[in-house]
């Protein structure tokens, strides 16, 4: 029997990390106390999507995962997708579209969109909606967020159809 030590080790944004934690601590709480505050606390029950991070390449809600559940796995947060100085393609389009109101939902939206772009070969509306329907915007700014996302997806599909490689760092 492996009794678990009060630490958890996983790859965080490409770096091997070990953190002291408690059995009951959620991944979101650990991330935020360690300074990864781009990931937001919203509903705390896996509904609103503000806490979305990627776990082994898939979007998940960090607010309902225990930190211990990610032992040995790979976690990616918004800090690894874009920065103020070097925003991702989708973040740039969100700004261009004026899609960011209070902004609280945006990191989660960006993480779900990143999962979509990295996991799916094509991006029709149905699949794009499937990836985005787990993220709520209480400012109800969905239309402009959708316009910004669709612009990025259309551009990537057009590039793929033309045989071009996508931007080397579309979302880092």
């Amino acid at each position: 029997m492996t009794h678990h030590a009060p630490t958890v080790s996983f790859t965080l944004n490409g770096e091997a990390k070990t953190f002291v934690t408690e059995p009951d601590e959620k991944l979101l709480a650990l991330l935020r106390r360690e300074g990864y505050r781009g990931t937001k606390y919203g509903c705390g029950q896996g509904t609103c999507g503000a806490c979305t991070v990627m776990l082994d390449g898939r979007a998940v809600y960090a607010c309902i995962l225990y930190a211990q559940q990610v032992e040995g796995r790979e976690v990616r947060t918004i800090e690894n997708v874009g920065t103020l100085d070097e925003p991702s393609e989708f973040q740039t389009e969100l700004i261009n579209a004026g899609a960011v109101q209070c902004g609280y939902c945006i990191p989660g939206m960006v993480m779900s969109a990143t999962a979509l772009m990295e996991n799916e070969p094509t991006y029709d509306d149905e699949i794009a909606r499937e990836y985005m329907d787990g993220n709520l915007c209480r400012c109800t700014g969905y239309e402009k967020i959708w316009v910004a996302l669709r612009k990025v997806l259309d551009r990537r599909e057009a590039a793929a159809a033309a045989g071009q490689k996508p931007d080397a760092h579309p979302h880092r």
Binding site: G49, A59, Y61, S112, D133, G134
Partner: peptide, 12 residues
């Protein structure tokens, strides 16, 4: 299965 909750939940 595609109609259960959201993709973040379905992944876990």
């Amino acid at each position: 299965c595609r109609r259960i909750s959201t993709h973040q939940i379905r992944n876990v």
